[in-house]
Design a protein around this nucleic acid. Structure first.
Lengths: 174, 174
DNA sequence: TCCAGCCGGTTTCCCTTTGGAACCGATCGT
DNA sequence: ACGATCGGTTCCAAAGGGAAACCGGCTGGA
């Protein structure tokens, strides 16, 4: 299977990665969250080539993660801003940063720290249950088929195929 | 800058991506969380080539995200299991899945649902402050230089360089 | 008027990474 | 002795990425 086809998978992780899973893309988004908006700032901060940056920004705009907003006319110039869809990537970014802090420390401590202004303290983001507020641990969460995969399973059965033929179903049957 | 050098950056997101930011890697980890352990199961589920899978698994083992455990001798066979470092990627995986659910739905609802067994309800993972427990919003969190970047800034000043010459510092000065 | 510089790109060329398919080798069941 | 199982490796063509030069509107200064 080609990487380009992963967005065809009935899996939210695969679909998410089809948008933010390419080289440089999450780093562009990190910079966007830190306030970077202009082409040449992104390029300097990231050390990515103009070529690649142009392509990645274009794709993110296409996908609705960034939006191009004019900041001057004559010559017409745009800057790139996070949309609501882009802002919704904040948890992904913070969990990545937290994992890097916890497991990729090179003996100097964390590169950045985060102060939660509503409570005034330095925060270490954690992932919690929307219903009870407890920290989510993998062994306490049971994944089960959702509507989208159940629909696929039904179609397969009607067509006389085994559920085992469909990777996402075989895998999630555990 | 070459992609291979991103782990040199003083940034936890970049360091994390140097381990889990390559094509297929997060999908391998997703499957590992769903119980996949053997080479050929990964290959069938993912549709990745054996070649690439072999390389990625090797790298993840090298980085301490997976560990090779023998499950039979004669012929000697290993399976791949998540280490503590690998299990710590759970928040990254769940936030990616949540974003995919929220923004990449293709009209069929979610592929998978998650039941939090300790409270018995279907959960939508959210990211919260370790100190006050409130949901973290980007506009309420102030990033500031941590020990690792402060050390870099000092070194630069001693060497007579401008802080502006160092991308991570220029960026985070906002 | 001409020229340099700013900004946000595009083009070109070459090298690295990825994908597909075939092959390998130890062992087991029959 | 033969095929199947499992976890790979080898080889080659195609796709993706990196470095550097070029482009094209516009502005400000000489």
């Amino acid at each position: 299977m080609r990487w380009n086809d992963i967005d065809q998978q009935v899996c939210s992780v695969a679909r998410a990665l089809s948008v933010v899973g390419e080289r440089w893309t999450m780093l562009i988004i990190r910079d966007a969250f830190l306030g970077t908006r202009r082409f040449d700032r992104f390029q300097e901060n990231l050390g990515i080539t103009r070529h690649r940056l142009s392509e990645r920004l274009g794709k993110l705009v296409e996908q609705g993660v960034l939006i191009k907003v004019p900041y001057q006319e004559r010559p017409l110039r745009h800057e790139y801003r996070l949309t609501r869809k882009g802002l919704a990537l904040y948890p992904v970014l913070m969990t990545l940063a937290r994992w890097g802090d916890d497991w990729m420390d090179q003996g100097q401590g964390a590169p950045m720290e985060y102060v939660h202004m509503t409570c005034g303290r330095q925060t270490r983001p954690e992932i919690t249950c929307s219903e009870c507020g407890e920290v989510l641990k993998p062994e306490e969460v049971k994944p089960q088929l959702g509507p989208a995969l159940l629909a696929v399973a039904e179609q397969l059965e009607e067509a006389g195929h085994s559920v085992e033929d469909f990777p996402a179903l075989a895998r999630s049957g555990l």
